[in-house]
Design a protein around this nucleic acid. Sequence first.
DNA 1: TTGACTGTAACCGTCATGATTACATATGTT
DNA 2: AACATATGTAATCATGACGGTTACAGTCAA
Lengths: 142, 142
Amino acid sequence: MAVHVLAWIAFDRRGTDKEIATSQRIATSVNTNPVVIRRCLGELRAAGLVESTRGRGGGWELTRGAASITLLDVYLAVGGEEIFAMPAAPPDAECYVGYGIQPVLSRVYAEASRALCASLKGTTIADVLRDAVAEYETGLRG
Amino acid sequence: MAVHVLAWIAFDRRGTDKEIATSQRIATSVNTNPVVIRRCLGELRAAGLVESTRGRGGGWELTRGAASITLLDVYLAVGGEEIFAMPAAPPDAECYVGYGIQPVLSRVYAEASRALCASLKGTTIADVLRDAVAEYETGLRG
DNA sequence: TTGACTGTAACCGTCATGATTACATATGTT
DNA sequence: AACATATGTAATCATGACGGTTACAGTCAA
């Protein structure tokens, strides 16, 4: 959803009319509630990806170009650190496997997480927006 | 949890006593309920990683060596295809971004998923077990 | 026949997440 | 000043995923 929101703001900014992106208009595109959008944008703002202006005529803007925001930035912004869950109840500490498996799994998760992040780093919001628009136009022809 | 369970079965098999792994004993190590273990093992069996024998003296065995079971096998067995969630409600189809973003994100997710799977493929149950036991012994010395 | 084990259904509590309502706050326009 | 339009955020509800638990049926060896 965060990716969608950011792409929408970037798209809106390209338009000829200088309207600023509001949570209401974004919500229409994402097909959800403005409050949900604001919550999402709040996280993105905390990560420094967007800025908001309040009051009439206010709304949301990217703090930098869409081409310099990677999906990794978005992933980290919305708190996507926890891909794999560690066991809720700690394993049996007196068991060989139960005792030693936790740190081992942590290392494995860190490794997998690195691979995932490296992949996400390869795509920017600008890439997503460009491909989405292309997809739209292809759909119209088909 | 599935990794823990498989490592435990592999560990149990190495022992001098020829006891077979039961869901009860596995549950003790994982610190959970035998039914949870059986549910988990049911998925692993569906994926062909383990076999069970019923009745007295029954239990669970690996269908192949621990060194030939990768974490990717486990990941796929327990249905870990869905890392990223697609929007519950479909985006606005009349919006440039809303229409085209879904297939674009699908491609991005597929790419990220490939990276993750490649990483998981590099570690086997045997690796995890070896490191866990080493961790245990290191802990005893410290 | 008995005991030990798997196989499952059923139900509960918890947690995360999105949806919604309501209201406080801020700010440009009139 | 009054109003319209935004954001900011708390509170609440519904939903789904997941583990924990109980209960019971099916299976097999001793």
